[in-house]
Design a protein around this nucleic acid. Structure first.
Lengths: 396, 396
DNA sequence: AGACTTTGTCCTGTGTGTGGAAAAAGAAGA
DNA sequence: TCTTCTTTTTCCACACACAGGACAAAGTCT
């Protein structure tokens, strides 16, 4: 079912749409305070937006001392689809035009099953959400994939953990299937956009967003815009060396950050500790489940298991080393840490902070908050919705 | 002698001025091809620029098949002053509006003598250049200082190697003295701008420019614009750790890049090798000069001294480690290496390349040129001129 | 009820930019 | 040398967009 969503005709209209998205319902008068346009001009543009149907009247605003102003808001029927494809699971969310999540599904799935299987799953999840009544159709979809993307074309490139995805025309194919505009980006970049839109990074212009999942990546935001690098692989910090001659990594080198600390490495370390009998708790868990995950370590740490805590601390130190370097180089205004292992929480955070504040220069670390992401598993999907809304809310 | 240089009235005029700066003399017709303005509009804006005196007529262009077009060029009397204050020397250059160097002076001077003494020297050098006839007055001056700068105010902040400079109102003071607009920036950023304008980085939008001088810094260019970070200390890579528990650094940490490889470290290592009798050549030089510098090592290496070569290779490996990390993170389209030690040249370059290509992922290193800067000691001064010309050629 | 404030609409004047026409200047060919 | 075709430049008329004032509508406060 193809929906022809209207697009703004000019930069002014785009500006207004984004204000309405970010500030919710708003009166014409307030809008006038925010944008620097003459009353007549503003009225004309708003009327045109009303005509297109992107914006609708929404009753009267409370008086500010005189005549009450007419409220307007983005069309309540607009729907964005946010898809976050992780290495081991898929998140799909439906949002309204203000990017509020109306429905959210999560499904375990191995990305290595390939794009066809994955998108079949995604479409079925989207259909399920539609059936639940939160959406009739979609006005745009944002897709996050766990690897580098050639952004303008919306095509994954050389994704190490995603065999079979190289060159798959994600944007093209999904746009066809869903009948709406689609944008594709790295999952880490989307997490950064999510935290910027609705999370801890509101109003910060330059920041880093480190995501620890199966691998490790880093979203880079410069001047409020995501920076993707020359070939779309910016932020790929998982293979920075932290230990010369250290552990062998899947990438062929030794001592990569990811080999020493990541969801996968953490699980491996925990299993080894369990087998060596260093932790009763982990051993018991291994016995029941057959294998261990980062979540198990997180749970054990929460229960006070010394080995689990030490693993997290050690990992945080390694991660902190790398972040310290990035902070010196990039001098961000904020560092956000998120991803599946947010459960490791404050133990990890404390360890990272110690390392960064010790290793980086005062000028860069003064007033540098290092915090956990606020949106949890929804960050990626919200960021995806944000990505496509930026596209839809820009002149055609 | 205060000169009132006119400023463009709008973005179109600014655009035209920059085109003339970057492409030299140009015909009205060619300009029309470049700027997407209607013929009438273009004619009006050009006429206004001619009125202000920023632009002058410059004869007729060769025919392109029909009537010959009128050439215009930036006023030939415009002069910019580019000042590059290094840790141990000062470069001052005078350029015309196209940023071609008309005169250049270099003077050894220790930045630690403080801002008052340094600027006295700078002013005297500027006066000498004036006296030589290349300039009558200046329409703007760009100043590079070897430390972080609060860019909007043009004030150095917490410069580790520049005691006495913290908070000194460089922009304010020099603007007063010179009677023209002044902009201040980190010397490394200016080198990057120099190489971007007239050197190897032309037409590259995202690149890194590593400067190895007394210390080590890195200019970051994102989308053609210098990125300075939240507090102006972006690119300060000298204190990234390369050797856990390594050498003590002046910053208080251990194992910093700068402690293991930089002009200062190299000189120290060479002196030690000379004293230990490991290199006849260096020992002889130490005997004559009383101390060694990075240039001495460079000379010895050129003469085939094994110890000097090994020092450079070892340093290049360390530097390469750090750059490899930055390349993974930033995914630049080019890495430029410059600074005083460019004499170390290809030995250093080879060593850095090996390390980067080995350690970073293929997607980031494919088609990633790592090259030496093209402008040598003039890069900083040209970048400084570029900085101020960008300012002067923007609407007031 | 009256004075004052805020909001929304209407209207007109101004200024800006577009695009066509024609003139100017030169190139190429007969 | 003359004619024809190109390219560049200037001139001009028309359309359009926008700002800002005037006024009406809708509220608040005394």
């Amino acid at each position: 079912m193809r929906r022809m969503t209207a697009r703004p005709e000019n930069a002014h209209q785009a500006r207004l749409l984004r204000l309405l998205r970010d500030n919710g319902s708003n009166s014409r008068a307030q809008l006038g305070d925010l944008v620097d346009l003459s009353r007549s001009k503003l009225a004309v543009e708003v009327d045109r937006l009303l005509e297109t149907g992107l914006v609708v009247a929404d009753g009267l605003a409370p008086s500010r001392g005189g005549r009450r102003s007419h409220n307007i808001r983005l069309a309540p029927t607009l729907r964005f689809l946010g898809v976050d494809i992780g290495a081991t699971s898929i998140d799909v969310a439906v949002t309204n035009a203000e990017l509020e999540v109306l429905g959210h599904l999560n499904q375990p799935m191995d990305v290595r099953e390939g794009p066809v299987a994955v998108f079949e799953q995604v479409l079925s999840m989207a259909a399920k959400l539609k059936a639940s009544g939160v959406a009739e159709g979609f006005d745009g979809a944002g897709i996050g994939v766990p690897g580098p993307v050639r952004f303008p074309e919306g095509v994954p490139v050389a994704p190490p953990i995603m065999p079979g995805w190289d060159g798959f025309p994600v944007r093209e194919a999904l746009s066809q299937e869903l009948g709406c505009p689609v944008m594709v980006d790295n999952d880490v970049n989307l997490m950064a956009m999510g935290e910027q839109h609705a999370g801890v990074a509101r109003s910060v212009r330059d920041f880093l967003c480190v995501k620890i999942g199966t691998g490790i990546g880093c979203g880079i935001v410069v001047g409020g815009e995501v920076y993707r690098g020359t070939t779309g692989s910016a932020g790929d910090i998982g293979h920075i060396q932290v230990e010369p001659g250290g552990r062998a990594c899947v990438c062929g080198n030794r001592g990569c950050l990811e080999a020493h600390f990541s969801g996968a490495a953490l699980a491996g370390d925990a299993e080894q500790a369990a087998r060596e009998g260093r932790s009763v708790q982990l051993a018991a868990r291994l016995e029941t489940a057959g294998r261990l995950t980062a979540e198990d370590v997180s749970a054990a740490a929460a229960a006070g298991d010394a080995v689990a805590l030490e693993l997290i601390r050690e990992g945080g130190k390694r991660l902190g080393q790398v972040i310290a370097g990035l902070v010196s180089f990039f001098n961000p205004g904020l560092v956000v840490i998120g991803g599946g292992v947010t459960g490791l929480g404050h133990t990890l955070l404390a360890s990272v902070r110690t390392q960064v504040y010790r290793q980086s220069l005062p000028l860069a670390t003064n007033n540098l908050p290092i915090v956990l992401g606020e949106l949890g598993p929804a960050a990626g999907a919200i960021g995806a919705a944000r990505l496509i809304s930026d596209h839809v809310f820009s002149p055609a």
